[in-house]
Simulated assay, not measured.
Amino acid sequence: MITARQFYQAWLEVIGNNQEKIQQYCHSKRDYTKLAISDNDSLIIQVAEKLGLSCYNADYYSLDSVLYHEQHRIKKGNDKYHYLSHICVAFEHENCFFSGLFQEVAHLLITLSQLKVLVSYPNSFEEKKVNQELVELHSIIAQTPDSDQISKKENFLLILGHNYKQDSKDSWKGLVFTTEEWKEL
């Protein structure tokens, strides 16, 4: 099982190795999203490779990306379609922190996967609003029947890129849901 800490460490390594591309694409949300998710050598594909997983990054049942072991891919029918019997990591990426992250959280909560990951980018100068949003997202997860298991397994990871234009791993924060609070990695 891939842990939140393993995923976060792989994410930071990939970010560190792609600073040039990030600097090139960070001025356009569309281009940055392609770099993060849908390019042939996207950040999420690189993370999957670091973790020894395969990645499908073309909207798997409306998820931005899913990471899986190749043995869980059902090889029936047309090869261009992916059918999986198990998802290791369900991944959502949202450029705009204040654009309704609750929708992404809800989508991840109803997805059967070992780890649920949401990456977003709050403006660090709006710390009070960011904290309010984090409280709201925490309460959504806390209200689910599985919240104790999610907390025990630490399998809901929120990655915040406070300023993805900076050339620093310090601009990232990994938070794991626990019943009491978001725990920083």
Results as ranks from 00 to 15, higher is better:
Met1Lys: 11
Met1Val: 12
Thr3Asp: 08
Arg5Gln: 15
Glu13Gln: 15
Ile15Val: 12
Gly16Leu: 02
Asn17Leu: 15
Gln19Pro: 03
Ile22Tyr: 02
Gln24Phe: 03
Gln24Gly: 05
Tyr25Ala: 04
Cys26Thr: 10
Cys26Lys: 12
Ser28Tyr: 02
Lys29Ser: 04
Lys29Glu: 10
Asp31Ser: 13
Tyr32Glu: 07
Thr33Ala: 11
Lys34Leu: 09
Ser38Val: 01
Ser38His: 09
Ser42Asp: 01
Ile44Met: 01
Ile44Asn: 01
Ile45Asp: 02
Ile45Tyr: 04
Ala48Cys: 00
Ser54Ala: 12
Cys55Phe: 04
Asn57Thr: 01
Ala58Phe: 09
Tyr61Cys: 08
Leu63Asp: 00
Leu63Ala: 05
Leu63Gly: 00
Asp64Lys: 11
Ser65Pro: 01
Tyr68Cys: 10
His69Pro: 10
Glu70Cys: 13
Gln71Cys: 11
Gln71His: 10
His72Asn: 14
Arg73Gly: 02
Ile74Gln: 07
Lys75Glu: 08
Gly77Trp: 03
Asp79Arg: 08
Asp79Asn: 10
Ser85Trp: 09
Glu92Thr: 08
Glu94Leu: 06
Phe98Ala: 06
Leu101His: 02
Phe102Arg: 11
Phe102Ser: 13
Gln103Leu: 14
Glu104Arg: 08
Glu104Ile: 00
His107Glu: 09
His107Asp: 11
His107Arg: 15
Thr111Ser: 06
Leu112Asn: 15
Ser113Pro: 13
Leu115Gly: 13
Lys116Glu: 11
Val117His: 07
Val117Gln: 10
Leu118Glu: 05
Ser120Asp: 06
Tyr121Gly: 02
Pro122Gly: 02
Asn123Val: 07
Ser124Asp: 06
Phe125Trp: 11
Glu126Arg: 08
Glu126Ser: 03
Lys129Leu: 07
Glu133Val: 07
Val135Phe: 09
Leu137Asp: 02
His138Asn: 01
Ile141Ser: 04
Gln143Pro: 07
Thr144Gln: 08
Thr144Gly: 05
Pro145Asn: 10
Asp148Gln: 13
Asp148Arg: 13
Gln149Thr: 12
Ser151Met: 12
Lys152Glu: 15
Glu154Ile: 11
Asn155Glu: 12
Asn155Pro: 14
Phe156Thr: 05
Leu158Cys: 06
Gly161Ser: 00
Tyr164Ser: 00
Lys165Tyr: 06
Lys165Gly: 10
Asp167Lys: 02
Asp167Tyr: 05
Asp170Ala: 14
Trp172Phe: 15
Val176Ser: 14
Thr178Tyr: 10
Glu180Arg: 14
Trp182Gly: 01
